[in-house]
Design a binder for these strands. Structure first.
Lengths: 177, 177
DNA sequence: ATACCTATTTATAATCA
DNA sequence: TTGATTATAAATAGGTA
């Protein structure tokens, strides 16, 4: 039999509570996923287990951190400087790209591409599902490769900054590609 | 009548999408609340709206910050965090640029199509036949061009990071209540 | 856009495998 | 302990006011 009057209170029974936790966590993450897809927005969820040792995160740890970073205020001057650089660059980049497209096309697909590229950069990840459109597959792979390059670049950059922290400035060209 | 076959894809209609967003956001936060109560665990959710400017946070901004700080500190080493911060800034910057683009647009169908395609890139799902080979070819070229620019900027930033390496490091302070 | 309404779809508590 | 199963409780798409 099913008797399900949900009284909103802590579930005493360990077994029941854990079972409920598993199920509801699953349902919750599904809801988040759907909301993002249906409405084209960004969202993330962090759910800690009972032991407090690990957390389930959606969409991904990396993405969540990104969103969280955006949510939390940051202050380091160095970071701000980099931020400004990135921001300026990206804004300029998109503006230029838009203008370029404007010349190439009849201003028809301009907006589309602007959004596509920026969303793709912002998201930074995607799932290659079961697609039968060859072109779409190719496009996804292409994007993935480039994302990896950027990722490696950023890590490399951070590693260098870390290793050289506290040391004197020492220009050197040591890049891997 | 009720007709409710929900295809898991971006909702084109602004009215329907916004209505769905409101309803589902409400339901989602309720789910989070229930999960925390029933299972005695900690969780938070951050949901950005379409404009990317504001976010709904549960349980509260303060509490969320606590959970997030814990999450941030829990996850990785210092340099890793820095990278994440960069990623966050990147996201933020893109969002701004994107918003600028949106302002230049006049809520036409093109925007919707762009979002649909970017959604595909993210989720692997799509449901329109608008895309043809020529379009994707153009898109690939466009992205490739843009990637190169970013690549160049990254190298430039590496150099700058080296120069700044002298004044560095200051871990983010985590607060756990 | 906001709130309510209702037919249906979903989520899920209890139970069994 | 996970996975199914199934009867019910919840959530919600489309209308409506």
């Amino acid at each position: 039999m099913d008797r399900r009057k949900v009284k909103l209170a802590y579930i005493i029974s360990n077994i029941n509570r854990r079972a409920t936790f598993r199920k509801r966590k699953h349902g919750l993450l599904k809801k988040v996923r759907e909301l993002c897809t249906l409405c084209g927005i960004e969202a993330c969820a962090i759910i800690y287990g009972e032991n407090d040792t690990r957390a389930d995160v959606w969409p991904s740890t990396t993405r969540a951190r990104s969103i969280l970073s955006r949510f939390m205020s940051l202050s380091k001057a160095e970071r701000r400087k980099k931020m400004v650089d990135l921001e300026g660059f990206l804004t300029q980049s998109i503006a230029k790209a838009e203008e370029t497209l404007k010349k190439q096309r009849n201003g028809n697909k301009k907006e589309e591409m602007g959004i596509i590229i920026s969303q793709y950069i912002r998201t930074g990840e995607y799932n290659l599902g079961h697609v039968n459109e060859n072109y779409l597959n190719d496009l996804s792979e292409f994007i993935g490769d480039n994302i990896k390059k950027i990722d490696m670049k950023m890590k490399s950059m951070e590693d260098q900054a870390q290793e050289e922290a506290g040391n004197e400035v020492e220009p050197m060209n040591d890049q891997d590609e």
